[in-house]
Design a binder for these strands. Structure first.
Length: 1033
RNA sequence: GCAGGGAUAGCGAAGUGGUCAAACGCGCGGGACUCAAGAUCCCGUCUCUUAGUGAGUUCGGAGGUUCGAAUCCUCUUCCCUGCACCA
């Protein structure tokens, strides 16, 4: 049966073909066996093919799959390709070919290379994301998310990579650079893009982490990424001496700007607001167009800093106006608003009115034409507050009215006895309105205990509302500053000096009443909290640096619990740094003397009671920007219609196919493809255009594991029952680089799909294993461009793929990064050869003289036990060591067929081809890969053998030492006399033959208490337990 | 700066209170086999010493806790990975 090295290749191919042909590794939904879903992160099929790094990766998974399969699990171990994406598109452009052709070529190379590694995938489950049968479901999910409000479109500052020619998600920006192009600074562009509302699940994503069996490192990374902080949102009243914000008041049907409550507001707020009071048509003429034409006059006056009050019918009227003109305002206050939509009940109610028939008719007409789309309106309103009274005679169904407006997520203020707010009391009797008319900004802080130390505010230089703060006096200074920070490209935030400029506006501290200046600064993040911070220079290092630079007062309000008082005998100029710790409050009014923790609670309470703030949580995590301005991805299934706005592609029209005939040149080829862009609007059937952005490829990889459960389904993304059967993934294997991207997105998807009733589970990946990275000879990550790739084909040509597999996993524990080097691979080859030799020898011995020594049994079963545990826990390196040791120990023994087959079985996951071949050659017809994993017999394991072994090993060591000395003296030895304590005599007797053979000596063993003892040098006196006396001659 | 992980014999890499001069592999040295080479097998591989022993110095560096530390604590140097002005 002699197997020679040159046969390796032939054997590998032979078994790979057989496994394929007999569908050995195909998974079925069988309930008899326990399921086990093992998954590796599906690879991007790189054009440069598969290198040793991949081989390392997949070997780790394959060993596990084979192990679990033999253990009797119903294993699902699939493979697919993350085949959309920028690199393929770029490579195709470079090589003047089509991305599809390029990608499919890469995939088929990948498959061949993977098969050559002997990986036991269920190839029937293969999938690739550029397949319309796959990305169709991306589009479906997108639409479902859109319906549920989990997808939205927003204009906001986004990250733009000039080399990728597209926007990037937050997660894809590192150090202000592109994740793919370390040399490209990210530009911030203000674009309208599609976002996935990942933040909806921020809390669940965070909380569930504890329940996951994942490496601590990944969990910590996700925790930091989500970045939850608890604090208080404090309202600071803002004053721009130059410019009063606008307050528009829209009266109701039959009203006029002269109403009593309106005069009251004008009087009280004339200093704080520029008050706009459109005089709308009266009740005898509620013609929709005439109302609009009046409002139209004020169109350009309204801005993002404006507050609008709409009373009664004025509420939905102003809503319609804002929606129609897409005007963003800061706050909408609706008092006793009419229903946003015309309904049957509405009509019934109108009929009951004591009004002229013409009036009723025109009101009916008005309402019918209102046709308000609250969904579109929502994004235009910064904040919405709705006043309702339960006894309002104009509301026919109170709960329904609440529900109608819920879509705007307003703050409802509910009263019991205010009627339609137009009684004799008038609206002046609602103190809450005053609270809503404060022109304030919420400021998030985790340290409300330092609020008495606020000496200035800083708004982000990137803030979209920055303009509202700049006074004409300060315009020049601010613009100079803004220009400076966009031109200096010291993006390394490490060295970024805190800079800013005074905007001219002020903010009023809600507790002290003190006014402090508002600065614009380069160190404030625009989309965290409200983009403005309260600065307490005495107790925050950043604020301190800033205050020093611009000579802003520093007010100490906390003394450290220990150490010198900070405010005593020291002017702020003497302070060297901020004190950021806890302590005792000073200079803090009624809170002075409390410790920080107590004050934090008390101050928060006070702010909440007085309506000046509220406790809240903030997350660092942002919503996931999924639009990409590139061709090679899933088209976003949306149509823009001039009349109907954003219209989702109807589900029946899916998939929106990515056109194959395209021209690369300037920008995204979809934009220049008229066949693709021009469509009829599904709603109104007029000409419309398609969205030309495609989806981030992380969208594809967020649910591919679900498709593996049912990859050929043409009717739906997957059969729910099949997903319920296989999911969650029992063991996921992949690199740590995806901690904050793929692994968060996939978790988000699972939760979102759960809430859309696609599946039941909360978490997709029960266990996660991070394999290490394989570095090239030069110490860098393997990549073709670096020229340091090692191809598995080359290695396996020299040594065989089984050798390579064993070598890779015995180098180090699989979670460690390793550097490739062929150094040492000979050891693995030697081991393979040893296995072959052993079975060759064993076979020729046939069934004679079978070793039945309990010690041998102990060794086999002990090893079996360890190896099983080691593989289970990904300690492959240990498993190999233990198997090697066992071979060493039994090499010369003639084991029973059953015992020797145990050896083959436990080796199979590591070197499947050669073991399968041996299995076959020793006369088995079945596939070794489908054999049962041997069970160790606890009864055969006896620790006493371990001790015995130790003693004998030591003896051998000693003997070797002594013999060497004699050899040096050229003395020939023939006899060995051993003296031991009586209880150990048996041990030596058991090993007598072995020792005699080994040393070619005649051996006599004496117990020290024996009378007839031959001991010329009194060696028996040295005897200790475990240490015999030795005499040689 | 913050968070996480490292530094172990010529190299790779185990080892987280005693059983540790430290698994295993590579490399290297010696031996067996061979005309020879390769392959294979056996032995050795911190230093000194020795009939199998004993002693000393080691686990990035410096201290400490302990009867006892590669392992625990403090400080420190260097390396990697992630995040980064998140209020």
């Amino acid at each position: 049966m002699m197997i020679e090295e040159y046969e390796f290749k032939k054997i590998e191919e032979k078994w790979q073909k057989k496994w394929d042909k007999e569908k050995v590794f195909e998974a079925r939904e069988l309930n008899k066996k326990k399921k086990f879903f093992l998954l590796e992160m599906y690879p991007y099929p790189s054009g440069s093919g598969l290198h040793m790094g991949h081989a390392f990766n997949y070997t780790i998974g394959d060993i596990y799959a084979r192990f679990k399969r033999m253990q009797g699990f119903n294993v699902l171990y699939p493979m697919g390709y993350d085949s959309f994406g920028l690199p393929a598109e770029n490579a195709a452009i470079k090589e003047k070919t089509h991305p599809k052709k390029y990608t499919e070529n890469s995939i088929s190379n990948f498959i061949n290379q993977q098969k050559a590694l002997g990986l036991s995938y269920d190839w029937s489950r293969i999938l690739w994301s550029h397949n319309p049968e796959y990305y169709k479901w991306n589009q479906l999910f997108f639409l479902k998310f859109l319906e549920k409000g989990l997808v939205y479109r927003k204009k906001s500052p986004v990250n733009w990579c000039s080399k990728c020619n597209t926007v990037l998600a937050n997660e894809q920006v590192r150090d202000g650079k592109c994740w793919r192009h370390g040399d490209v600074d990210i530009e911030i562009k203000n674009l309208e893009q599609w976002f996935l509302k990942t933040t909806n699940y921020a809390d669940e994503l965070l909380n569930n982490l504890d329940s996951l069996d994942w490496p601590e490192k990944i969990k910590v990374m996700q925790k930091n990424w989500i970045g939850k902080s608890k604090g208080v949102e404090i309202n600071f009243e803002i004053r721009n001496p130059d410019k009063k914000p606008k307050l528009m008041i829209v009266h109701g049907w039959g009203g006029s700007p002269k109403e009593n409550w309106f005069n009251w507001i004008r009087e009280k707020y004339k200093d704080k607001y520029e008050i706009i009071t459109p005089n709308l048509p009266n009740s005898s003429n509620p013609e929709i167009e005439s109302w609009y034409s009046e409002l139209e006059k004020y169109k350009d006056k309204l801005d993002s800093d404006t507050i609008v009050i709409g009373y009664s019918l004025g509420g939905p009227t102003i809503c319609k106006f804002l929606e129609r003109n897409k005007i963003k305002i800061k706050k909408l206050i609706m008092i006793a608003p009419s229903s946003p939509n015309y309904t049957k009940e509405h009509l019934d109610w109108i009929k009951k009115l004591d009004a002229l028939p013409e009036e009723i008719n025109s009101l009916k007409n008005y309402l019918q034409r209102l046709n308000l789309n609250l969904n579109n309106l929502k994004s235009l309103l910064g904040e919405t507050i709705i006043y309702l009274s339960k006894d309002d005679p104009h509301i026919w169904d109170f709960d329904k009215r609440l529900e109608e407006y819920t879509i705007l997520s307003p703050k409802f203020k509910i009263f019991e006895n205010k009627g339609h707010f137009n009684s004799d009391f008038g609206i002046t009797k609602i103190p809450e309105l005053e609270e809503d008319l404060i022109n304030s900004w919420p400021i998030f802080t985790t340290r409300p205990d330092t609020i008495f130390g606020v000496t200035f505010m800083v708004i982000s230089a990137q803030h979209p509302k920055l303009e509202n703060f700049i006074t004409s006096n300060q315009k020049k200074e601010v613009n100079n500053f803004l220009k400076k920070i966009t031109t200096t490209s010291e993006k390394n935030s490490e060295d970024l000096i805190k800079e800013g400029a005074f905007t001219g506006s002020f903010a009023k501290n809600p507790l002290t009443g003190e006014e402090v200046p508002i600065y614009v600064g380069n160190f404030v993040v625009s989309d965290y909290g409200s983009g403005m911070v309260m600065s307490v220079p005495a107790h925050d290092q950043r604020d301190f640096d800033f205050a020093k630079k611009y000579n802003i007062p520093i007010k100490t309000v906390i003394n450290p619990p220990e150490g010198p008082l900070r405010n005593e005998g020291k002017s702020s100029k003497d302070l060297k740094e901020a004190y950021c710790g806890k302590g005792i409050l000073i200079n803090s009014g009624e809170f002075s003397g409390m410790n920080s923790l107590e004050a934090l609670k008390k101050i928060s309470d006070k702010l909440e009671i007085e309506g000046k703030g509220k406790r809240c949580v903030q997350y660092k995590m942002r919503d996931w920007l999924v639009s990409r301005q590139r061709y090679w991805g899933t088209p976003i299934p949306v149509i823009y219609c001039e009349h109907c706005g954003i219209v989702p592609v109807p589900e029946k029209d899916l998939p929106v196919l990515l056109p194959e005939k395209i021209k690369f040149g300037e920008g995204n080829p979809l934009q220049t493809n008229s066949d693709f862009i021009n469509v009829k609007c599904p709603k109104c059937n007029l000409n419309a255009i398609r969205e030309t952005d495609t989806m981030d490829t992380f969208f594809d990889s967020s649910w591919y594991y679900l498709r593996f459960c049912d990859n050929k389904n043409k009717k739906e993304p997957f059969d729910k029952k099949k997903v319920d059967f296989w999911m969650p993934v029992d063991q996921y294997i992949g690199g740590a680089e995806h901690a904050c991207m793929h692994l968060i997105y996939a978790r988000f998807f699972t939760k979102a799909l759960r809430d859309l009733n696609f599946l039941k589970i909360d978490e997709p990946f029960k266990k996660l294993f991070n394999q290490g990275m394989l570095y090239g000879l030069d110490g860098f990550v393997m990549s073709k461009s670096r020229g340091n790739v090692v191809l598995p084909e080359e290695v396996s040509k020299k040594y065989g793929i089984d050798t390579a597999r064993i070598f890779l996993v015995s180098l180090a524990s699989p979670d460690k990064d390793i550097q490739w080097s062929e150094k040492g691979i000979n050891g693995s080859l030697k081991f393979i050869k040893r296995i072959i030799t052993y079975f060759e020898k064993n076979k020729s011995k046939k069934e004679k003289n079978i070793d039945v020594n309990p010690k041998t049994q102990h060794k086999i079963h002990q090893t079996l036990k360890f190896v099983t545990e080691d593989i289970e826990n990904f300690r492959y390196n240990f498993a190999i060591i233990k198997i090697r040791k066992l071979f060493e120990q039994i090499f010369d023994l003639n084991l029973s067929k059953k015992d020797s087959e145990i050896l083959l079985k436990i080796l199979n996951p590591f070197c499947p081809h050669i073991t399968e071949e041996i299995w076959h050659r020793i006369g088995n017809k079945s596939f070794l890969s489908l054999e049962k994993w041997p069970k160790f017999d606890e009864n055969k394991i006896d620790k006493k053998f371990e001790k015995e072994d130790e003693i004998i090993e030591k003896l051998i060591l000693d003997l070797n030492n002594i013999i060497k000395i004699f050899e040096d003296k050229k003395t020939k030895l023939s006899s060995l006399y051993l003296y031991c304590i009586p209880s150990e005599k048996e041990i030596y007797l058991n090993n007598l033959l072995d020792l005699e053979n080994r040393f070619d000596l005649k051996i006599k063993i004496f117990s020290v208490n024996e009378k007839e003892i031959y001991d010329p040098e009194n060696k028996s006196k040295k005897v200790k337990p475990g240490k015999p006396g030795i005499y040689l001659e």
